[in-house]
């Protein structure tokens, strides 16, 4: 009996703390996002992060997408040739890249690069009193630190995914034509025949959602870190893990919303 009660208490405590965290994150997100439309939005900070996310992640995202497209073409060729469906390769590549792999892989790469950096920077600011200093210097940390990062990541991720889409398709095209012997024109025709606006749009919406999540987890974990260098390290790890898992989970939710009709 007591075992059972212990178990209940444990579950209850877990539930409560989960709810508290969820509530905390939601309020944090609202407070941060609201500053985007309130006066005195720090455009200088926004631009700094926009460049950092959008421009300096280009190489990482581009390479990821290129190799993914190449692997995809190769894999589906060896797989599909078992039932003579090689001609579907172009469509498989373009649909998987635009709908799924572009946004998800770009999201995961950016989570590792940017989410970690945000958590580390803000976490360090927290443990060295810099966030308190902001408050005493007539600056709301939510406005100065959180809002520009949220906006920058939300806007920069779709741009990155456009690049990822193009390079992913290009990777497939490269393998398809050079290695597997497809006629270039035919490959491109197959590619654009199946592609619909919704495929790209859903991918870009995912990208924006993922960008917001990455910045939210990065800033939230950093903002709430405590206890010196070790705390900052934990915050960084937590930010990357949380945003990666959330990316995959919300990927399902957004897909469901777009395509389950």
């Amino acid at each position: 009996m007591t075992r059972f009660l212990d178990f209940l208490a444990l579950t209850g405590r877990g539930l409560i703390s989960t709810c508290r965290t969820l509530g905390g994150v939601s309020l944090f997100a609202l407070a941060g996002a609201s500053h985007v439309v309130r006066p005195r939005f720090p455009f200088r900070q926004f631009w700094r992060h926009f460049v950092e996310i959008g421009y300096f992640s280009l190489a990482v995202v581009a390479l990821t997408a290129l190799f993914t497209g190449m692997v995809l073409a190769l894999q589906s060729f060896t797989g599909f040739s078992r039932f003579n469906a090689e001609s579907a390769i172009a469509s498989v590549v373009v649909l998987s890249v635009t709908r799924e792999l572009g946004p998800v892989l770009a999201g995961l790469m950016v989570a590792g690069r940017i989410g970690a950096a945000m958590a580390a920077e803000i976490g360090t600011m927290r443990v060295t009193d810099q966030i308190d200093a902001l408050t005493t210097l007539s600056t709301d940390p939510m406005r100065y630190l959180v809002a520009p990062r949220l906006l920058a990541a939300t806007l920069a991720m779709p741009l990155l995914v456009v690049v990822a889409d193009i390079l992913g398709v290009f990777g497939g095209f490269l393998i398809g034509t050079v290695k597997l012997g497809f006629v270039p024109q035919l490959y491109l025709m197959r590619t654009f025949d199946v592609l619909q606006t919704m495929d790209v749009v859903s991918g870009l919406v995912k990208a924006a959602v993922f960008g917001f999540l990455i910045a939210l987890m990065g800033t939230w974990c950093g903002y709430n870190s405590k206890g010196g260098a070790q705390g900052v390290g934990q915050a960084t790890t937590r930010a990357v893990v949380a945003s990666s898992i959330l990316i995959l989970a919300l990927d399902y939710v957004v897909t469901e919303a777009f395509f389950s009709r």
Partner: peptide
Amino acid sequence: LDRTGMLFQNGALFDSLPVWENVCFKLLA
């Protein structure tokens, strides 16, 4: 807080900004 100044024990300077921007941070804000 607008009319208050605070020197933190460990300085708490913003290391992403040059010194001059640190010094005039409040005036700029």
